[in-house]
């Protein structure tokens, strides 16, 4: 208490520790993936090597990585179209049952992901549909579409209708007015929605784990299954692969819409 008066920047120190807390585990995965030992160590006690990265393919991490990327891109593409269409219908038009439809389409955000996962598993089992890319894709699109809807809807709500009406008044047909005026203006919302959707899809384990086969598995599920068998430095290398994707995403968002936008934070005052 006495020292506080001497001007020790407690808030600053606390925040540095806060950021250490936030970043330490991520750094730990990256650093320990270069450990020479088979059993990962942080910080590595022995020498440093990058040999484990060559073992990624043997452990099927590479194929899981591409499976995750392709699944994420396909799901995001579909969800962006579905979500944007739905947001347009729900924000722009008034029709009976609109509120009910909106609530229904947002329910995947409230339902525990694990409930959606097991329900889909049981339903597919009932229909004797075997697990594969289409069944997993359907699950991912269901879960991520509401995120797109929400972000597109909020940018539509902020949009000045008069701009579109002015275009119509100047002779543009509805489609032209939409494509030339509305779409460019809501584009940040669409990109933010798609970004969020991809992150959620790439990250999901809770639903995905019920919809994969032992052969075809996404990267996070593969890592989770490997951790259960015991830690290995190759798993850390696989984790670094995921961190690399996160880094690419970060650069992409920062260059396009500003990373704060995705989470609704202004980066500049």
């Amino acid at each position: 208490m006495q020292r506080k008066k001497m001007g020790i920047p407690w808030l600053g120190i606390f925040n540095v520790l806060g950021y250490v807390f936030l970043l330490l585990p991520i750094v730990a995965v990256l650093v320990s993936s270069f450990s020479e030992m088979r059993k990962p160590d942080f910080p590595p006690a022995g020498g440093v090597t990058y040999k484990w990265y060559f073992d990624l393919g043997r452990w099927q991490f590479i194929s899981s990585f591409w499976y995750s990327v392709i699944l994420g891109l396909l799901a995001t593409f579909a969800a962006t179209i579905l979500g944007t269409f739905a947001a347009l219908a729900l924000v722009r038009y008034r029709f009976p049952g609109r509120d009910a439809i909106q609530t229904f389409l947002m329910t995947p955000l409230i339902l525990p992901r694990i409930l959606i996962g097991i329900s889909l598993l049981q339903f597919y089992t009932l229909l004797t549909i075997s697990a594969g890319l289409p069944t997993l894709l359907a699950g991912h699109v269901i879960v991520i579409t509401p995120y797109v809807m929400r972000l597109v809807a909020s940018s539509l709500a902020r949009f000045d209708r008069n701009l579109e009406l002015a275009a119509r008044n100047l002779g543009a047909n509805p489609w032209e007015a939409f494509r030339r005026i509305t779409l460019p203006l809501i584009m940040p919302g669409v990109v933010a929605g798609a970004a969020f959707a991809f992150i959620v899809s790439f990250d999901d384990v809770t639903m995905t784990i019920f919809l994969t086969t032992p052969q075809i598995v996404t990267l996070p599920v593969r890592i989770l299954m490997r951790i259960d068998l015991g830690l290995d430095t190759v798993v850390m290398a696989a984790g670094s692969l995921g961190i690399f994707v996160a880094f690419l995403l970060m650069v992409f968002f920062e260059k396009t819409i500003g990373i704060g936008k995705i989470f609704g934070v202004q980066t500049a005052r």
Partner: peptide, 20 residues
């Protein structure tokens, strides 16, 4: 710095704590 961890898969972040 605050948002960056959100982009890293939960499984990988929790695995990092196993190392720490």
């Amino acid at each position: 710095l605050t948002i960056a961890p959100l982009l890293v898969t939960v499984v990988i972040r929790s695995m990092g704590w196993l190392m720490v």
